[in-house]
């Protein structure tokens, strides 16, 4: 009986898809939801910040009288929504994801999986999917909250917003993967992630809104992935400055550089 298996096994393994991916994805999602810190930062923090500022700061509720119509009647928080979406992407990519991946390495999960028929690459793939899902929930909650609670008008150019969001996600997730590529421990990845996270937030307008950001900062921001994302999302939401071509190209370029680098440098044991 063993002899027959010996002959058949290699071809059979190659022919079928990897067994158990569905179970892996479902289990990892369940386990992911048990980590309150990750869930808070990935899902609650961006929307919470948006709603908190929108409801608590009177200036954000007042209309932007100096903006070109029809935006002159929209509340001030409107200009902050694209930044919040960029924040949601950046938070998952630079705080949640690298720590997860480095912890898998630290705990020996990647190495343990390499001894089974399930390649460790699929665990990372499953978590990319979970993070994309978290991102959609987080961004969705921000947008819905902004529209329903804060009376923010819907995007002028939703397709551009969507395109920039997709490219921002590929660029930032590639960056997150690179951050986690070599880290031996979760805490190392966390530290490195934070080192990139906080400057990124500054250039994407979390602390100084894009509308009042000095030109030199805007110029630097254009060449940074999260800065370009915030600018591109703003352009798509307001639709008054045309298509954000430079920002889209910058995000595509970061993706093309960072993704292969992250994959190549990633240590699987």
């Amino acid at each position: 009986m063993s002899a027959v298996e010996t002959v058949r096994a290699p071809g059979a393994v190659r022919a079928r898809r990897v067994r158990g991916f569905g179970t892996l994805l479902a289990t990892e999602l369940k386990v992911w939801l048990r980590d309150p810190t990750a869930v808070f930062f990935a899902l609650v923090f961006p929307t919470g910040l948006l709603l908190g500022l929108g409801l608590a700061v009177p200036a954000f509720a007042e209309p932007m009288t100096e903006a070109p119509p029809p935006w002159n009647t929209a509340p001030g928080i409107t200009s902050y929504l694209p930044t919040i979406i960029a924040l949601a992407v950046g938070t998952i990519a630079l705080t949640t994801m690298p720590v997860q991946f480095a912890t898998f390495r630290e705990k020996g999960v990647l190495k343990r999986l390499s001894t089974t028929p399930m390649p460790p690459q699929n665990l990372i793939g499953a978590h990319m999917l979970i993070n994309v899902l978290a991102l959609l929930v987080s961004c969705g909650a921000s947008v819905v909250g902004a529209l329903l609670v804060l009376d923010v008008p819907f995007a002028a150019d939703p397709l551009t917003v969507l395109l920039v969001l997709v490219l921002a996600t590929t660029a930032m997730f590639s960056l997150g993967m690179l951050v986690a590529a070599r880290a031996e421990k979760g805490t190392t990845a966390s530290g490195l992630g934070m080192l990139i996270y906080f400057p990124s937030l500054m250039f994407s307008g979390v602390w100084v809104p894009l509308s009042v950001m000095p030109d030199w900062m805007q110029t630097i921001g254009l060449y940074l992935p999260l800065g370009a994302a915030a600018q591109g999302l703003t352009a798509g939401w307001f639709g008054t400055d045309g298509f954000p071509l430079a920002q889209v190209l910058v995000l595509a370029a970061w993706t093309l550089v960072l993704f292969p680098l992250g994959v190549r440098l990633f240590r699987w044991s």
Partner: peptide
Amino acid sequence: LQEAALHDKITVGEALDVFGSFY
């Protein structure tokens, strides 16, 4: 393997089910 190799928050039953599903 020598080292612990699971996420702290996965249960015993879940770990067996998920590893079993690979084979």
